[in-house]
Amino acid sequence: MDHETLYQAIFHRCSVRKYDAAPLPKQTLEELRSFMSGLLPLLPEIKTELKLLGPDSIKINAPHAVCLYSEKKDGWRMNAGFLMEQIDLYLSAGNIGACWLGMIKPDKGKTAPPEGMEWLATLCFGTPAQPMHRTGAEQFKRKSLNEISGLTDLYHVLEAARLAPSAMNSQPCFYSGDTHSIVVSRKKNLMLGKLNQIDTGIALCCLWLSLLHQGMTAEFSFEPQPVPEKHIFMASVKTGK
């Protein structure tokens, strides 16, 4: 599946919470495995592993789940969000319902984590038993663009990041800097801090796809930059043609 198809899925995806109990066809799961083997990481130096599980291994109300395990290194949560959002959008584009499960881990004793890694994120999925696509941006409950950035010349790019899902719809990300180097920070939140790090990776994935859609390049840097008060620097994105 190409980047443009993933980008278009941003504008109609939604969290699906009701599923048909029947498992997806084996071919569909094999195609998903093939897609997952080619995911682009945000931080390639962090080792990760993805596992496809069923209700016998994890408490979900869907026939399938994909769980991400990762080395515990700086940026590991953000990297997980970046990787898993690619899967989320792939599923939505293929008319397969999916939902982020921020706190649902595989059952202990049934699925052991890979050596040197920890569970970090779960996405359940399956055939939806409810409408699974939004019909327009007005159906998203999100902050306005001027609440998340003052970069008015980039609002056409930031719209995709604005629509990114986040824990409790908290939308922690703020976009500052300039048109050539977008600085991404997240609002401090004691309760949602860990999940908001994953959320930042999700938003960065949507921003990356949006830049590609505009015919631009994205080069990520993690050297600290000044950010607004009560925010934490997460990444900067150097843009180009």
Results as ranks from 00 to 15, higher is better:
Gln8Tyr: 01
Arg13Met: 11
Leu24Pro: 07
Thr28Glu: 12
Glu30Pro: 03
Glu31Cys: 07
Ser34His: 14
Met36Thr: 03
Met36Tyr: 02
Leu39Glu: 00
Glu45Met: 11
Glu45Tyr: 02
Leu52Thr: 06
Gly54Phe: 00
Gly54Leu: 03
Pro55Thr: 05
Ile58Ala: 03
Lys59Cys: 08
Ile60His: 01
Ile60Glu: 06
Asn61Phe: 15
Asn61Trp: 03
Pro63His: 01
His64Gln: 10
His64Glu: 07
Asp74Gly: 00
Arg77Val: 00
Phe82Met: 02
Met84Ile: 06
Gln86Cys: 02
Asp88His: 13
Asp88Met: 14
Asn95Cys: 09
Gly102Gln: 00
Lys105Val: 04
Lys108Asn: 07
Thr111Val: 13
Ala112Asp: 01
Pro113Asp: 04
Pro114Arg: 07
Met117Val: 10
Trp119Ile: 13
Leu120Gln: 09
Ala121Asp: 00
Ala129Thr: 08
Pro131Gln: 15
His133Tyr: 09
Arg134Leu: 15
Arg134Trp: 07
Gly136Gln: 10
Glu138Pro: 12
Gln139His: 15
Lys141Thr: 13
Arg142Gln: 09
Asn146Glu: 15
His156Glu: 00
Ala160Ile: 09
Ala161His: 03
Pro165Glu: 02
Ala167Trp: 00
Met168Phe: 08
Cys173Ser: 05
Ser181Phe: 07
Arg186Leu: 12
Leu190Lys: 14
Gly193Val: 01
Lys194Phe: 05
Asp199Gln: 01
Gly201Ile: 04
Ala203Leu: 12
Cys205Met: 11
Cys205Gly: 07
Phe220Gln: 04
Ser221Ile: 08
Glu223Asp: 15
Gln225Asp: 10
Glu229Thr: 15
His231Gln: 06
Ile232Asp: 15
Val237Leu: 13
